[in-house]
Write a protein that binds this DNA or RNA. Structure first.
Lengths: 195, 195
DNA sequence: TTCTATATGTACCGATCAGTTCACTTTTTA
DNA sequence: TAAAAAGTGAACTGATCGGTACATATAGAA
């Protein structure tokens, strides 16, 4: 089953790059830590960059699916789901393996806007904004894209600060902040599905 | 004048690392781009890491001084100065040389919390929070540290997203967001210096 | 069983990594 | 002006970088 072996490689490489960084992890160490020989890696991917791009595509899919499911599990109404973003983030931040956002870190190491890795990271943020906008619209926001971007700003901020502040109550404060902006954008608990 | 030559080196190295990243910039390239020979660099700094730490200390001083001055130049009252944070950030983000926050990028490349570079980045954020807390207290906030952290969350978020979204109006939206949270924390324009 | 595909480890490539050494030149200072 | 300090470029160390070559081992399909 070659397809699953390739998937296993990408999944393991994702963890290694996430924990260790992109430049800092060489291909020899990657082969050692994933348990896949360099020869086999280079049969699946022509370059290190292509492997990194594959890990980022997988991470994008996994993270957005995880967040969507947590939002839906934690709240039923769109308005409450927007707030639940920050309950989900708090769960993630508390995990011992939490090491900030992989896409923020990728864009920090590959800074040129035209670089495929940077562009993939930007696309991830765009897709998150689209998702948030959909929920904000269902919640009855008059300017759903604006509210979505504000929530995205808070999300990125709390992730970055959680990685730098260790052990603070920044996640709870981010939720408080989100509550304020949601209440401002959605007065009187108006919900588009209830109108 | 040896002290100024060393300062020049750190200032130039700061620009090179900020534009190119830490792992990605080798010492040979750094010597070439700063115009200082490798021999001289290693007379001033024992390791690359010590040089990076020196650039981060300089950046910390320069950035916080710059922000403080812009806040004071753009607004007189503490409450307005808190909002002016985001006018200052908008100016920075519009500069062609803007490439996100150097400390966020440093913590992305040196992820272990005990690493001196990571710790220096964390200290920078702590000092920013202290500064914001002072202004929030002057503005009459009942929970100045909480408001300060909320503004810091917005600051980090908008910087990261500006680097990933290129050309969007995220800075203006961050200011709108800041206005909401400031109004919430400081009702009736109460100012501690005016009470 | 035999063929084919895919895996493996190891050795290798030229380039670059961080850091050192050395012979020499420039600048500062007394 | 002469000694001391601090600069230079280039060669060098051993290690690692991304990527390749090759001979061998293992797996599934015919």
């Amino acid at each position: 089953m070659s397809a699953s072996k390739r998937d296993d490689l990408v999944q393991n490489a994702l963890k290694v790059f996430y924990q260790g960084g992109f430049h800092a992890i060489g291909m020899d160490r990657l082969a050692r830590e994933t348990g896949v020989s360099k020869t086999a890696i280079y049969k699946h991917f022509r370059t290190k960059e292509e492997l990194i791009l594959a890990t980022l595509r997988l991470r994008d899919e996994q993270f957005r699916n995880w967040l969507r499911r947590r939002m839906e599990a934690l709240a039923a109404e769109p308005r409450d789901q927007l707030l639940a973003i920050f309950d989900a983030l708090a769960e993630w931040i508390e995990e011992p393996s939490f090491r900030s956002c992989m896409f923020v870190k990728a864009s920090a190491e590959y800074q040129e806007k035209g670089h495929p890795i940077h562009a993939t990271a930007a696309e991830h943020k765009r897709l998150l904004a689209v998702h948030f906008t959909e929920i904000a619209q269902k919640a009855g926001a008059t300017e759903p894209a604006k509210l979505a971007q504000q929530l995205l700003i808070i999300k990125e901020g709390v992730i970055v600060l959680a990685h730098l502040n260790q052990g603070n109550d920044v996640a709870a404060n981010a939720k408080t902040l989100a509550q304020i902006v949601i209440d401002e954008a959605l007065p009187e608990g108006a919900d588009r599905t209830e109108q």
